[in-house]
């Protein structure tokens, strides 16, 4: 059993000990929020430092972008200053293009005309080939005896050959050796030249004037659906030969030509005024 002094001493020590614990508790209770506050502030400072860094980077980027923008603006200004020149050049090019297009159109028209002329020439060539294929060559030697006859038909043949030598040309609008003829008008002109017909002018068609023939004699008229109106002759092939060839002589687009009777389709016959 402790004495009262010892008990008092123990009690005092307990009180001191408890006070010490209370102080430690006060330290801890104050320190914990302090530490948390410090940590939060440190974290905030760290975040703000990061934000500062980002801000600096953003400012650098902004500066860079601004610099680029200035460059672009400068380039744009330069381009804008070049724009009138470019527009003038463009206008010039446009005018040249228009001129070129006009020249091209002219050339195209000329080409079309040339092509048309070529097509016409091709048609004429084809026609000429057809004429050549069905040509009836007149050999003067071969028809010498035939030509010695003094008949109106032979007279007409001589006249036709002379006109052929004179190169009377094809002209649908003409009615004279100078102007030329189409095929029916030439036949009318030849008949009128010998006085067998009178007072018929251009466009008077022989099939409206002459009477039809059932058979053909030298000097009769053969006309075709295509409008050719030719004089018929059955000519010897060679001198002294009994072989003959049925030919027709008259105006064609190639001039006065001697053709075989079948050189065109659907022939009809007209009796010449000088034949019985």
């Amino acid at each position: 059993m402790d004495t009262p002094e010892e008990q008092i001493e123990t009690l005092a020590r307990n009180i001191e000990h408890r006070e010490l614990l209370a102080r430690r508790r006060a330290w801890l209770l104050s320190l914990v929020p302090l530490v948390f506050a410090g940590l939060l502030l440190a974290y905030t400072v760290w975040q703000v430092a990061g934000a500062k860094l980002e801000l600096a980077q953003t400012e650098a980027q902004l500066s860079n972008t601004s610099s680029q923008l200035d460059t672009v603006e400068s380039n744009l200004t330069s381009l804008q200053s070049q724009l009138p020149t470019a527009q003038a050049a463009l206008t010039q090019v446009g005018e040249q293009l228009t001129q070129s297009q006009s020249a091209l159109e002219t050339a195209q028209q000329e080409l079309d005309l040339s092509q048309s002329a070529l097509a016409t020439a091709q048609v004429d060539l084809d026609s000429a080939r057809a004429f050549i294929r069905k040509a009836c060559p007149i050999n003067v030697e071969a028809i010498k005896e035939f030509m010695n006859q003094e008949t109106p038909a032979v007279e007409m043949l001589r006249f036709l050959l002379v006109m052929q030598e004179d190169n009377i040309r094809w002209n649908p609008g003409g009615f004279s050796p100078e102007e030329g003829f189409d095929s029916p008008d030439f036949a009318l002109y030849a008949l009128q030249n010998f006085g067998f017909l009178t007072d018929y002018g251009r466009g008077s068609r022989p099939w409206n004037i002459l009477r039809p023939a059932s058979s053909l004699m030298d000097g009769d008229i053969v006309y075709y659906d295509s409008g050719y109106t030719m004089f018929y002759y059955n000519l010897p092939v060679s001198y002294g030969s009994s072989d003959t060839r049925e030919c027709v002589i008259g105006m064609t687009p190639l001039g006065i030509q001697a053709q075989l009777i079948d050189f065109a389709e659907s022939p009809d016959y007209l009796k010449a005024p000088y034949n019985p």
Binding site: I8, L11, A12, I15, E16, E19
Partner: peptide, 8 residues
Amino acid sequence: FLEQVIRS
């Protein structure tokens, strides 16, 4: 004892 406690 009271003195001691008061000092404490």
